[in-house]
Simulated assay, not measured.
Amino acid sequence: MRADERVMLGRSGVSVSRLGLGLASVGGMFRPVSEARALATVDRAWQLGVRLFDTAPVYGYGRSEERAGRALRPRRRGDYVLCTKVGRLIEPGGRDTQPIWADPPPGVGPRLDYSRRAVLRSVEDSLRRLGLDRIDVLHVHDPDLDYPTALAEAYPTLAELRDRGTVGAVSLGVNHADVAARFLREAPAPGPDCVLLAGRYTLLDQSGLDDLLPLCVDRGVAVLAAGVYQGGLLAAPHADGDVPPALAERVRTLRAICERHDVPPLAAAIQFPLAHPAVTSVVVGARSPEEITASADLLTRALPPALWSDLRGAGLLSGAAPVP
């Protein structure tokens, strides 16, 4: 599979690349990234055929959106799909701060708000930071933080924007598969078009299979699989004390099987989710041109069928999980 392969985003009519670039890292997640490096990362992704870009107001408290806009504005608007999120406003005195953002802009912070008024303001603010005339996909970000308001106000507001043609697709951006499944069932028809699912359909956590992914197949809802590297857990060995013992053992087993087949664990990690019929794309983070180049290369690497058989035999893959 290639990074530049295009596929329809569920029933939305939006066409996305199989590989997407998540822009949290270029917003300064965990450590600063220079403006030049951030733009070079997006430029390299573009050269590789990536046409799906995902950002959010909370990423670097507006910095990620600003950089996304600067990187993408020179491109022809119809050639890429840009996703951002609603649920947090970036404003003076915002107290919903997160320590993961390095060197955020001074004097502002996020404020959680899923009300209709806040959602409309969030979209206006995002368009201003991006310097673009439209957003292709809007996610309700972390709806579990105020589920009643996210369902009763945020989703209907985004659905109205979709009906007007202001946005191409409405989505959920979640870390919990059960929250997304509940939301899909309870949202007024026709419901969200897609789900950005972080860390819940991976080699180490397939909880998305329990309910959400079959529901998405049944309803024609696309899944964008994020967090497939498990926050870097598969990238390099960790000391046993860094992760729970059971998880550390799963990681050691996975690495041993991959080594036996001469396969980088990250290659298996990025290719695995795409075998499921609900999964449209994999969205990975990168803070440098080298990182997104590596992910694109891993996506195209040929992997032996015996790898998946051994992973399943070791209990690392659910019996219900399709494999490439």
Rank of each mutant, 00 (worst) to 15 (best):
Y229C: 01
A222G: 15
P305R: 10
A267W: 01
V323P: 09
L127N: 11
A226W: 06
D113T: 14
V221G: 06
A248M: 05
G319Q: 13
P237A: 13
R129V: 07
V123P: 06
L203I: 12
D262T: 13
P214I: 07
A56S: 14
A181S: 15
G208N: 09
P92Q: 03
G13C: 05
A154C: 10
I100E: 13
R88D: 02
R2Q: 10
V283W: 03
Y201L: 09
Y155A: 01
S295T: 11
V167T: 14
L82D: 05
A320S: 15
L184R: 08
D211K: 01
V14N: 03
D297E: 15
G13K: 06
S171Y: 06
A296E: 04
L130D: 09
S64T: 12
A302M: 12
L197F: 12
P32M: 12
E65R: 08
I292T: 08
D310K: 07
R44L: 13
D125W: 05
A189F: 08
K85L: 09
V223A: 06
R116V: 13
A320G: 12
L196I: 05
A102C: 07
R260F: 08
V279H: 03
A294Q: 05
L127I: 07
L203D: 01
D240N: 00
L303Y: 01
L112F: 01
T280M: 00
P264G: 07
L161C: 12
A239D: 14
P265A: 02
G13M: 09
L23E: 08
G285M: 11
L203C: 09
D210I: 10
R252I: 05
T157M: 10
